[in-house]
Design a protein around this nucleic acid. Structure first.
Lengths: 197, 197
DNA sequence: GAGCCAACCAAGCAATTGCTTGGTAGGGTA
DNA sequence: TACCCTACCAAGCAATTGCTTGGTTGGCTC
């Protein structure tokens, strides 16, 4: 196999299976026997591939977050106008919900629990980083005069963050609407409100 | 004790302690020994007051939801104009987050898991009921001409619901803002958008 | 055909879990 | 004094948990 292109190994398959279960039932509530059963092997065999159950979520979350925050950085580094950057960030987030359902769900639901372990302290850093991304986007919009000045930045950031990510709890790929349509509707509400003009 | 007024019994105390732990660490992740330790008794002694751990969450959630949905019903039955009713519903929800933090958090975080047990099937009914409340409020607003007609009702409902309830994950009573201030800011964004007029 | 290696099995251990059982302490009541 | 009743303890059981250990299988390579 001289091909250097990424190729799904058994290990990757197991990680995908685990991610699905962690997202569906929660980390603590998923047993190594659940994962092994879904993969058609015995629970002990998992330990040929991974150190521990914790190592599995760790790898799942690290990989996902590296990609996501790389995209945020690109947007911030671009020369697009403030409002376009904000829209891009929302679009990219909904795209992540579409392409990485399980990972987003795990991060949403299990971060608080995982943060009680030292090895997951990097999750707090990522939260902080996310906050800075959104606050920067909002502040740039205000400075450019395209966003309301009377908003409480901190509250607005939380509303945006929460509404975007919580969509993972109900969004299903292949549903009535694409993630792009949902993102655009959300932006429409966020930017113009639901009030009749 | 001839007094018929409600009085905090030991049982009620234990329920409060359990609610705090369920909200903080999750239902499955809270052991009966955790609850007993917090109450200063042994785990077996809990079973003098309750049938099972499940019975505890059950009682916690039932009591809370009865009160909350009673308030929604009052709003719908009132003769206030559509927009005022929508605002009232948002205010009442944030008030619930303030007064019943633990209960809201439990319902938010554990409903999916609890729904896998037959005895908690009523949670699905409550979700359905909540959906009808918000959809009715939105539809009335549209019919009255005070809300945009081009909105996807289902999506709008989900955005409102999610953003309101998810605030329980960061709101802390006694913080910089009261729940009423937060609710008003949220309504301001929801109704008018964050765009500069 | 010898050696290697990734992938897995079979069995089980120690810790943790929800819950049970039989008993006790202490305050009120008759 | 005899009786309840509420609230609890002390001890432990059966099931489930994450993980370990030693061994097996089948395909690949030299």
């Amino acid at each position: 196999m001289p091909e250097s292109a990424p190729q799904a190994t058994r290990r990757d398959e197991l990680l995908e299976i685990a991610a699905g279960l962690f997202a569906e039932k929660g980390f603590k509530n998923t047993t190594v026997r659940d994962i092994a059963d879904s993969a058609g092997i015995l629970s002990g065999s998992l330990y040929h591939h991974f150190d521990s159950k914790e190592s599995m979520v760790d790898e799942i979350l690290r990989t996902f977050q590296e990609e996501l925050f790389g995209q945020y950085d690109e947007i911030l580094a671009s020369d697009a106008p403030p409002l376009a950057q904000l829209e891009q960030a929302v679009l990219v987030s909904f795209e992540a919900i579409d392409k990485h359902r399980d990972e987003v769900a795990i991060f949403q639901n299990e971060a608080a629990y995982l943060l009680t372990f030292d090895r997951f302290s990097y999750l707090a850093d990522r939260n902080q980083q996310s906050r800075e991304v959104w606050l920067t986007l909002l502040q740039n919009g205000i400075d450019a005069g395209v966003l309301r000045k009377d908003l409480d930045l901190e509250l607005t950031y939380r509303f945006i963050r929460d509404t975007v990510w919580v969509a993972v709890s109900w969004y299903r790929p292949g549903g009535r609407r694409t993630h792009t349509e949902i993102a655009r509707q959300y932006l429409s509400i966020l930017l113009e409100g639901i009030n009749h003009a």
